[in-house]
Design a protein around this nucleic acid. Structure first.
Lengths: 232, 232
DNA sequence: AGGAATAATAAACGCTGTATATTTATTATA
DNA sequence: TATAATAAATATACAGCGTTTATTATTCCT
């Protein structure tokens, strides 16, 4: 093959092909084991050719992180669309289930975005933070809808501290158009879902919990009760 | 230096020194970036010398994992000992705080044991599972104590399913001398604490949550209420 | 005392990300 | 249309990695 191949011999959409091949490698070996040379080998090119599209391995990783957040956000959005006529409680449960299903389907993607950072990789936060917040959007929307329909006292929640209130207020002031309590609930519900899911895909549950999905289901339903989101 | 140095020129307790040096490397670069050659360089030996003590890099990693679980378990036990005269509610809160403090102090250890698995590493579960369960022991003990003092209805918890009950029963039959509900509460409280802590050390909280410790505090106190563990 | 076992090194292998120089094809410009 | 510039690819090289093998010197055991 000549150094610059004729157009007819070039791989069409090579940038996308590199990303797809990277995903296949990550799915098999994990994100930290992503090898530019393995990606190049699979595409029958040499590793330096990848630098025409991604200035460094970090840039490829960043693109993959944005991909993963988008994929999760899209999945959450689709789950919500399928249940647009359902009650917000059902929607909340469905979002939780969808989140877990997405993680179980793409465990390595999940670990890439929420797991241990890859050694020596530095995320450009101006790029990754917006993608990350998009993944939380559907959850926030559903909780805001619940809040709008009914905002009962939440006696099973410890009091909000002034420091916490200040943080949530600052977030509002930065443009998040939601009630403070909604923001808080979204964050803690997400942390709970995340905790369960991450322990599950990481095989961290003790051996006798053979079906962590059962724990997940009970916890999701318990969250509705514990945060007074179940309309009672 | 001659290939086999005299005893006087050998590094005493070299195995322990390798582990300590590995911890230092991990603390700086993360566990997945652990390099036998870097460890060897720091100790002024060559990398193959490490194979006298650890048959492979995996074996060193396994030893470090067991170290980390032990360190966490010891920290939890010490926290409990310091508050042996306190109420079990206070003990539970203290355990949660101690867990988070330990993770904040040793984030890379936390990621090693509960984060994304290291590429190509295979944990010997007969070795790592007992160490992992030891880290949960103090939490289980405190919840069992709470359960023994008072076992009120828990209306904010969704019903336990037969499948979940079967798993917990099997765990009991395997030798865990605790009530099923205690086991369940320990697992879910741990998952919640883990979720918050892992998001915190992974810098995953949205940017406006500048002090995740505030979220943690409110959630710990809310757990006492939500699982009817606060004596009311 | 002699042989076996052990603790270390040197050298080698096959892998990694990245940089550099070169080649060829395509595009832009005069 | 011809030339210069640009772009897409390769070959080569460098410095790093975990691991293996052979070798050497020291210690231990009989």
């Amino acid at each position: 093959m000549s150094p610059r191949p004729r157009r007819s011999a070039q791989i069409p959409h090579l940038q996308a092909a590199i990303q797809e091949t990277a995903w296949a490698q990550i799915a098999e070996f994990g994100a930290a084991a992503l090898s530019l040379r393995a990606v190049a080998r699979a595409l029958h090119i040499t590793a330096p050719a990848i630098y025409n599209y991604f200035p460094s391995r970090d840039d490829l990783v960043t693109a993959l992180i944005v991909d993963a957040f988008s994929s999760l956000a899209d999945s959450q959005q689709a789950a919500l669309s399928r249940l647009s006529a359902a009650s917000p409680q059902e929607q909340l449960v469905a979002l939780g289930m969808d989140y877990r299903q997405w993680a179980l389907r793409y465990p390595q993607r999940y670990q890439l975005i929420f797991g241990t950072p890859i050694p020596h990789y530095h995320a450009p936060e101006d790029v990754t933070n917006p993608a990350a917040s998009r993944a939380l959007l559907s959850l926030m929307q559903v909780i805001q809808r619940l809040y709008t329909i009914q905002n009962p006292p939440r006696p099973h929640l410890a009091p909000m501290t002034p420091a916490l209130e200040a943080m949530l207020t600052a977030w509002q002031s930065a443009g998040l158009p939601l009630e403070r309590e909604v923001i808080y609930l979204a964050v803690v519900i997400w942390s709970r879902v995340h905790g369960l899911v991450q322990l599950e895909i990481g095989r961290q549950f003790p051996p006798h919990i053979t079906d962590p999905g059962e724990v997940f289901q009970r916890e999701i339903r318990s969250m509705l009760i514990q945060y007074s989101l179940n309309g009672e």
